[in-house]
């Protein structure tokens, strides 16, 4: 154990994490992103650099591939723990980010292994320079991304029956089936309204007590309920990294006693790269939709 603590192995893990923390701190100091946006570089370039830095410390150890992978996972795990402590990230957010961190730290470690195998200084300087240039350019660039997710279900009831449950509904008692809700991510529980008209206030209450304040902007009875989200909790979990901007329920009478209920949500994402995080955002939004819409279906069909 004492040997491990004094070893190049540990130095590689500690130094890479300290350097990355300093880079993030400096980046926040000089290019502080508005609204806490987390950029592509922080999840791709920095983990790659971590791996490369660790590989520099490990270069003389002649490590087997499986050891490099295990130590890289440990390296990434420490970064995740430090993000929890110093960046105030939530557990669910860290579960989501962990595959990305592990994959890029491991990639960086093997890139580093190749770089430091021989004294290939040209390669070393050029790769590190490219990574730093990409990081700097990404840091000073604007980041905006908006998306809309739409889901629909068919309910065996008329629009008139469904409408009142769309506007507001009592507590959802059904057990969660989506795995992220099961591991602690807040799920929608209840909706209340101050009045049944355009301009009225609406509250969407989540399982942990968080409340999304909404304002009804379209109140087309039995057809269209659209509401803007005017206040949402700033939670360290995923909620802090995605802004739900607007929600909508559309009811389409199928003319055979059934109704198609469409749920739409518009959101802006504050974590990048999009190709990774939007997969999660879509999945989470879809499961919020489905939990609410299936509840509406259940109580509408009981009527």
């Amino acid at each position: 154990m004492k040997t491990f603590l004094q070893s190049k192995l540990l130095q590689g893990i500690i130094v890479s994490n300290v350097i990355i923390l300093i880079v993030i701190w400096l980046n926040n100091l000089f290019h502080s992103e508005k609204d806490g946006i987390l950029i592509y570089s922080e999840f791709v370039i920095l983990p790659l650099l971590m791996g490369v830095i660790s590989a520099w410390f490990w270069r003389s150890l002649n490590l087997k591939s499986r050891s490099i992978i295990w130590y890289s996972i440990l390296d990434g795990f420490l970064a995740i723990v430090l993000s929890y402590i110093f960046l105030g990230e939530g557990t669910i957010c860290l579960i989501i980010v962990s595959p990305l961190i592990f994959a890029f730290v491991i990639t960086g470690a093997f890139i580093g292994k190749a770089m430091f195998r021989k004294n290939n200084q040209t390669l070393n300087v050029s790769i590190v320079s490219i990574l730093l240039v990409v990081f700097t350019v990404d840091s000073v660039s604007d980041h905006h991304y908006r998306n809309m997710v739409s889901d629909e279900i068919v309910i065996n009831a008329t629009p008139e029956t469904i409408w009142k449950h769309v506007v507001s509904f009592d507590k959802i008692k059904r057990a969660n089936t989506y795995w992220l809700f099961k591991v602690g991510m807040p799920s929608p529980m209840q909706t209340t309204v101050t009045a049944y008209r355009k301009g009225a206030g609406r509250k969407c209450i989540f399982s942990n007590g968080y409340v999304f304040d909404e304002k009804i902007v379209t109140f087309d009875i039995n057809k269209d309920l659209t509401f803007d989200i005017i206040g949402q909790p700033k939670d360290p979990e995923i909620m802090g990294h995605i802004d739900i901007e607007r929600g909508q329920f559309l009811l389409k009478d199928n003319g055979n006693g059934t109704t198609t209920l469409v749920g739409n949500s518009w959101y802006s994402l504050k974590v990048f790269p999009i190709w990774y995080y939007d997969l999660w955002a879509e999945s989470i939004t879809r499961n919020v939709h489905l939990r609410v819409m299936e509840h509406i279906k259940e109580i509408s069909e009981q009527n």
């Binding site: 791709v44 992978i69 295990w70 592990f102 994959a103 890029f104 491991i106 990639t107 093997f110």
Partner: peptide, 16 residues
């Protein structure tokens, strides 16, 4: 850029 290397890292993780 990097896709093939990251994909190979995922294979390594799976092999591990």
């Amino acid at each position: 850029p990097l896709f093939a290397l990251v994909f190979d890292s995922l294979i390594k993780m799976w092999m591990l």
